[in-house]
Simulated assay, not measured.
Amino acid sequence: MNIPLFRQDLISWFEKEQRDLPWRKDKNPYKVWVSEIMLQQTRVDTVIPFFNRFMEWFPTLEELAEADEEKVLKAWEGLGYYSRVRNLQSAVREVAAEYNGVVPDTLEAISKLKGVGPYTAGAILSIAYGKPEPAVDGNVMRVLSRILLIEEDIAKPRTRKTFEEAVRRLIDETHTSSFNQALMELGAMICTPGTPACLLCPVREHCEAFAEGVQSRLPVKNQQKKTRDVPIAAAVISNSRNEILIRKRPSKGLLANLWEFPNYEVHASVATKRESFRQQFQEQLQVIPQLGEHLISIDHTFSHLVWKMEVFLGKAEEVSENIMNSHQMKWVAESEVEGYAFPVSHQKIWKAYQLLKSQSTNQR
């Protein structure tokens, strides 16, 4: 491969064809950092409005460091993988305290921050600071597996080293920001999974897989994650004051510290889920709920499990304050529900509830 010509072709294409993305307006390390955390496991089109809102709420690193976690979770609501934003805020607080609010510009220092792995460190250092560090994500591995005909399994963690070494060999040290972003952009726009758009590729002449006609079978990825189904019965419970019962999830584990509607894991048919929910609710809160009609069925997939949810409408009267506090539950007015950060599955529950109420009102 003619490396200087490869760099020139790749960077020239990127400078002409790059998408107009809000985090590319400047090379502010804080903005680059936030965008890269958001883009992990999330599509660019999805991220854009979240990034814009997040920057409106927390325009500086210091404001994010000082923000209440409830507000941060609300700003992140809908993006999922909430541990990302908790780690981000924790790391930002460390930067504010230990580095006078300046994001570290060395690999050693930045890699010590919570939630900053090799990819995020490389992205910040190369894009914001112009350091010749590799930023290897799925797009980059796919692009380089084809260009360099690398047939190692990208699902294996050790394979990342192969691609990091490849980037170090290829990277343009005078245009590190454009080079790394160009590799990512190429993977997102042209060198896509399955059948890439090779006829539009600016570096097709440098691609060994294209020359061999094997681009569609790369990259090699053999690892398949198994998921398990978790059957759940949930309910939107209201009281005589038309308040809604919500509870806060534990501070550790899946969807930590987010709010949700009461729900229980229930291994039973839909017909018996109501009764099982009623029993568990009564055992936990010492109150018997009245469960009404079925509201919605929701399947929500995580990387390792699938929530298979059956959701009902319900009524309940006063619950002991001590019991409510011990289970981190509270009654809130319907108009206040959207002020709390809920996981996507429970946002869908609330939308279904609002739609049902709207339809009922229109039919009167």
Rank of each mutant, 00 (worst) to 15 (best):
P132D: 02
A123Q: 03
V140H: 07
K156C: 00
I127G: 12
P132W: 03
R158A: 15
F163S: 02
S145E: 09
P134L: 02
R168N: 13
L125G: 09
R168A: 14
R160Q: 13
Y119D: 04
I127P: 08
A123L: 10
D153Y: 04
R146Q: 11
A128N: 07
V140N: 06
G130C: 09
P132N: 09
P134D: 06
M141S: 11
R160N: 14
I124P: 02
M141D: 04
L125V: 12
I171T: 01
I124L: 12
R168I: 13
E151C: 08
R142T: 04
A121N: 10
V143L: 10
A128V: 11
I127M: 13
I127V: 15
R146T: 03
E133C: 14
E164P: 01
L125C: 07
T162A: 09
K131T: 04
P134H: 11
I127R: 10
A128M: 05
I171G: 00
L149G: 00
L125M: 08
I147V: 15
D172T: 07
V167E: 02
P132K: 07
E164M: 13
R168Y: 15
A123S: 15
T162G: 00
D172F: 08
A121W: 00
F163R: 04
Y129C: 12
V140M: 07
K131A: 12
L149V: 08
P134R: 09
F163P: 01
V167G: 00
A155T: 15
T120P: 07
L144Q: 05
I154F: 02
P157R: 14
I150F: 03
S126G: 09
A128F: 12
G130A: 10
S145W: 04
I124R: 06
R168P: 00
I154L: 03
I150E: 11
I171P: 00
G138W: 04
R158C: 06
I150R: 03
M141Y: 05
N139W: 10
P134M: 11
A128E: 02
R168Q: 15
V167C: 05
E164L: 04
G138F: 07
R142G: 01
L149Y: 14
F163K: 05
E165C: 01
R142A: 08
R142Y: 09
R146K: 15
M141Q: 15
D137C: 12
R169K: 15
S145D: 13
V140K: 09
L148C: 12
V143S: 07
R146Y: 05
Y119A: 15
E152V: 12
E151M: 07
Y119I: 05
L148K: 06
E133K: 13
P134T: 09
V136M: 12
G138L: 13
R158Y: 14
R169W: 13
R142L: 09
R169P: 00
P157H: 11
L144R: 05
K131G: 05
E152C: 05
T159L: 03
V143W: 06
N139D: 13
K156Q: 15
Y129N: 09
V143P: 01
S126I: 00
P157Y: 06
I154R: 01
V167H: 02
K131Q: 13
P134Y: 06
A121Q: 12
E151Q: 14
L149R: 14
A135Q: 07
E133Y: 13
Y129I: 06
G122C: 08
A166M: 04
